[in-house]
């Protein structure tokens, strides 16, 4: 297994769920633009990031649901990562 195979593997995975990943990435960039537009407004920035986190959790659940790979452990994983980051941002911003 060389590096080329590894990158082929990533490409294959990304292509398999191209729409899903593009949606997540596009929305992510959109939220970054919104964040940049509201510079200096801490509460607005927190709300924007909170919306992105909620979107990410729903994205994860929907994605695995459509992929027929949804398990409680997976839902918990998305929740734990999302809520941890949300709390972290809450400490930083408000």
């Amino acid at each position: 297994m060389n590096r080329q195979n590894f990158f082929d593997h990533i490409t294959k995975l990304a292509k398999k769920h191209l729409f899903d990943y593009l949606l997540l990435l596009t929305l992510g960039i959109f939220f970054l633009v919104l964040l940049s537009l509201s510079r200096g407004e801490r509460m607005a920035q927190f709300m924007i990031l909170a919306l992105f986190i909620i979107f990410y959790i729903f994205w994860g659940i929907t994605h695995h649901l459509l992929d027929k790979s949804l398990r409680p452990k997976i839902v918990l994983e998305y929740f734990l990562i999302g809520i941890t980051i949300l709390l972290l941002l809450q400490i930083i911003l408000i």
Binding site: A14, L32, S36, Y56, K73, I85
Partner: peptide
């Protein structure tokens, strides 16, 4: 194994990482 998608977590955490730089900038 059955876990969440690495690429999805990577995109998500990457965006949060970048956003921390934006948060440091004021108006």
């Amino acid at each position: 194994r059955l876990t969440g998608r690495h690429l999805a977590h990577f995109i998500f955490l990457g965006i949060i990482f970048i956003s921390l730089f934006i948060l440091k900038k004021g108006a």
